[in-house]
Write a protein that binds this DNA or RNA. Structure first.
Length: 582
RNA sequence: GCGCCCGUAGCUCAACGGAUAGAGUGCUUGUCUUCGGAACAAGUGAUGUGGGUUCAAUUCCUGCCGGGCGCACCA
């Protein structure tokens, strides 16, 4: 539809001797202005050889006259407003046909073809074994999972990848803590892991890590020991190996349980430990080829030579070890070898922005013909800060990603309306709703910015929230079930009265889904779905939908059904699960 | 010091260079409680600041003020 109108405008402009590649056609913020609006008369006015004396408005009139001659199908009315906007009003039939498409397409409604045939790798979450799963990982997971689904929805084959730091100083710290257990956590004997679920053991490891981390800064002797451990681990010391393997395994299992709750399933896991060798080799190879240079014993890359805004970074330390930079090179080569993605989308925290640009520049210089750099896309998320100064979880610990999820789920559980749940049902529902509320808080704003999270407010029973979206859908479901019981079937009636703002909003879903991809911004979906839920709640409040005495009842049911379909598809794109009841 | 990001109602967030800057929350008031009130409706209230570009600036450029992040052997 949009393309058809644009084409017509283009034709008309050519008649006036104006050629433009891009025509701006948008939905006016105020729906009473029409369904589409263009500013071509305002923009094109200056390009005219002999502009009409009446100004842009007169020019708009001339354009409109010609547009009307074209008789664009489904365009009911063309008018001029304000300084020279041309507004298009579509015929009701266009919308009722679209609603019929929603019902016919079901879960396929809203799919696009922008990435048809492409392979996209999305790399996200990236927690580190031996360390707690913290809030940043939760943000990365919510964003990455949503982007994965948005990309999939545009026809791409998606590879979900998780790159984890299973080697490095943090591991040495954790191992040191386990070997010594200086605070005697859980009364656990030093040098071994306690018995328990993966989550419990991971929590123990987290405490050991934290102890060692403090000692590292305060105690010179401890620092020396940890540094020595780090070196031993790097060279896979036999004595430490089983302790290392067990701890690595168990923290990874604990992460896996969280992914399940969050609704993520990774296709591939990459580990830093496996990238050091390949990365080192590559850096050395390209040192000879002149991409890298020696400086103070280290191997560095002077990114500022190619882009003055970038800086120099170390790719191999003077001790000959591979820092993150070299491992990233190894990872890049590996993932392109494994999947050859058309786009490699990576989500990290914002502080890695410049670092990533330097690495990307190095890759550009290393592999100009393979176009790796051109296919790399980096998005960054901000930090989650907490309102009300409440920085610890219910158990009094530092808030981790895991404790935030569990605390939120527990609060939701307390506030749930009792519907005669079994314990299993209640657990399941509170989990789905609790995770939804966290994901909503993360995804509702632009992904780059920091977000302020208030545990109490985000699960408050009123207003903008994940539960609000789920609740609207539950209501719609209820209505549809009641209609079924009363044997009224949904049927679209193709009359002018049957198209209101709410119906128009429903059929905008495909373009919102597309925009979420083209800007890589899930928050467009959240904003849209919130408006849509609000629209439905108003629609619902206006009068009965299921009413045997109302001849419009079948149409209202069709609209309700279309709403439910779009809400389901939309929630799926942001990675929010839908409960059976709530 | 240099680079990147940000500054919008009391608070948390929107706005593809466009029309009267939208939501939620808070506060004030109302609906209804017959399809699920975790709801609906009404009122209240904002673009940090000085220039510039444009028919049109929250949006682009620029000065200042304020905040976050990054800038060599950590990840």
């Amino acid at each position: 539809m949009e393309e058809k109108i644009k084409q017509s405008i283009k034709n008309v402009l050519e008649d006036f001797g104006i050629s433009t590649e891009t025509i701006s056609l948008e939905h006016p913020a105020d729906m009473s202005h029409g369904d589409y609006s263009t500013n071509v008369a305002l923009v094109g006015f200056k390009k005219l050889q002999s502009p009409p004396a009446g100004g842009p408005k007169t020019f708009a009139e001339e354009i409109v006259a010609k547009l009307r001659e074209q008789n664009i199908s489904n365009v009911a009315e063309i008018s001029i407003a304000g300084p020279g906007f041309i507004n298009f009003k579509l015929s009701p039939k266009y919308f009722t046909d679209e609603l019929a498409n929603v019902l016919a397409d079901g879960e396929k409604y809203g799919r696009g073809t922008a990435l048809q045939g492409k392979t996209v790798m999305v790399e996200y979450t990236q927690p580190n074994p031996f360390k707690p799963f913290h809030i940043g990982h939760l943000m990365s997971n919510a964003i990455g999972e949503s982007l994965s689904r948005i990309v999939e929805n545009q026809g791409a084959k998606v590879i979900r990848a998780n790159y984890q730091g299973d080697i490095g100083l943090h591991v040495a710290k954790a191992i040191y803590g386990i070997l010594k257990n200086p605070s005697n956590h859980s009364g656990q004997a030093a040098g071994a892991y306690p018995k328990g679920t993966p989550a419990e053991v991971a929590e123990y490891i987290g405490k050991c890590y934290s102890d060692a981390s403090n000692l590292y800064d305060e105690d010179m002797a401890a620092k020396a020991e940890i540094d020595a451990l780090n070196k031993k681990l790097y060279y896979q010391d036999v004595e430490l190996w089983s302790l290392y393997q067990e701890g690595r395994q168990i923290t990874l299992e604990a992460f896996e349980e969280l992914y399940k709750m969050l609704g993520t399933k990774f296709d591939v896991y990459y580990f830093e430990s496996a990238m050091a060798e390949e990365g080192t080799k590559l850096v050395e190879e390209f040192l000879d080829k002149g991409v890298f240079e020696k400086s103070d014993g280290a191997v560095v890359f002077h990114a500022e030579k190619y882009n003055p805004k970038l800086h120099t970074r170390v790719f191999l330390t003077s001790a000959g070890l591979a820092p993150y930079e070299a491992k990233e090179i190894g990872l890049t080569v590996r993932k392109f070898a494994d999947y050859n993605p058309d786009i490699s989308l990576v989500d990290t925290a914002t502080e890695q922005r410049d670092y990533m640009m330097v690495v990307t520049e190095a890759i550009r210089q290393m592999f100009p013909d393979k176009k790796y750099a051109e296919r790399m896309m980096h998005v960054t998320h901000g930090m989650m800060r907490f309102a009300s100064g409440k920085m610890s979880s219910r158990k009094g610990n530092i808030i981790t990603g895991e404790s935030l999820v569990l605390d939120t789920v527990a609060l939701i559980s307390e506030k749930m309306t009792d519907r005669g749940w079994s314990l299993a049902e209640k657990t399941e529902v509170s989990e789905i709703v609790g995770v939804a509320s966290i994901k909503y808080s993360i995804l509702r704003s632009k992904i780059g910015s920091d977000i302020v999270y208030d545990v109490e407010k985000s699960i408050s029973t009123e207003g903008d929230s994940g539960p609000y979206l789920q609740y609207a859908l539950m209501r719609a479901k209820s209505v549809l079930e009641k209609a079924k019981a009363e044997k009224i079937s949904p049927k679209i009636s193709h009359t002018a009265e049957s198209v209101g703002d709410f119906e128009k909003m429903i059929v905008r879903f495909p373009e919102v889904a597309l925009r979420a991809w083209s800007e890589a911004e899930p928050h467009h979906l959240i904003t849209y779905l919130t408006e849509l839920a609000s629209g439905f709640n108003s629609y619902y409040a206006q009068g009965k939908i299921v009413d045997p005495t109302d001849s419009h009842s079948p149409h209202k049911l069709a609209v309700t059904s279309a709403f439910a379909t779009v809400m389901r598809n939309g929630l799926s794109l942001v990675g929010i699960r839908i409960p059976e009841r709530m």
